[in-house]
Design a protein around this nucleic acid. Structure first.
Lengths: 113, 113
DNA sequence: AAAGTATATCGCAAATATACGATTTAGAAT
DNA sequence: ATTCTAAATCGTATATTTGCGATATACTTT
């Protein structure tokens, strides 16, 4: 019975929800912070920093990559990841305009606040 | 094997991930937009607007309520929901400072961009 | 009191996410 | 060529999410 009804919503709503989902796990938040902190790409150092197994970290990295938030290149036997700035900025813009939209419409207090 | 490792992360990371999760479904994005649009609280009109069954909408509303993003009061036989402005603003601040943090650290281009 | 209306909750099925160990892949070093 | 190292992928177990119909709840209207 759990058919995916997500397609029934607007592109914009779907896109924002997808970005939110990419950020919906503390491990992925931590990964993004760590990547930004080090600036230059790192790889398995994340495994040392995070309280997760190597395979689990790899999985989270793939999710962030699929969402487009990070990019990865193979550097010898290691893998090197970094933040995809343009995609990230687009994500920020989506969130910002959504938040702004909510805030500007919300002029007066609702009946239950 | 899927023990919850979320507690192993910082409070801040967990809180942000929780907020992101609340926004991680297009139905919940749509609900928030609709609530903001109408400003005054509405209830089951959401069921008419959304392509989902009444029980499913109710479930999404509960999730948003648990995340603190909306408030609900019982108004006779109907239920009345609206955006919890202060909580919402706090959420916006969390996202903003996270994004800002990422952006400011990310001065130079990473090795794989 | 009885019937109607609006919501919430329960129970269930299916899909997806989380996590890990084991294995595979691929380049580096001996 | 063999061994080593780093990372991705596979297989699997469990947890959570999504979705719906059916039922329960609670207030209104008749």
């Amino acid at each position: 019975m759990a058919i995916n009804k997500k397609e029934a919503f607007s592109q914009e709503e779907q896109a924002l929800a997808t970005m939110a989902k990419a950020l919906a796990h503390p491990a992925r938040i931590a990964i993004l912070k760590e990547l930004a902190k080090r600036n230059e790409c790192i790889c398995g150092e994340l495994v040392d920093v995070l309280p997760l197994a190597q395979s689990t970290v790899s999985q989270h990295l793939r999710e962030l990559k699929e969402a487009g938030l990070i990019a990865g290149t193979i550097d010898g036997p290691k893998s090197c990841y970094c933040i995809n700035e343009s995609a990230f900025r687009k994500a920020i813009d989506s969130f910002s305009s959504f938040f702004k939209d909510i805030e500007t419409r919300q002029k007066t207090a609702g009946c239950c606040s």
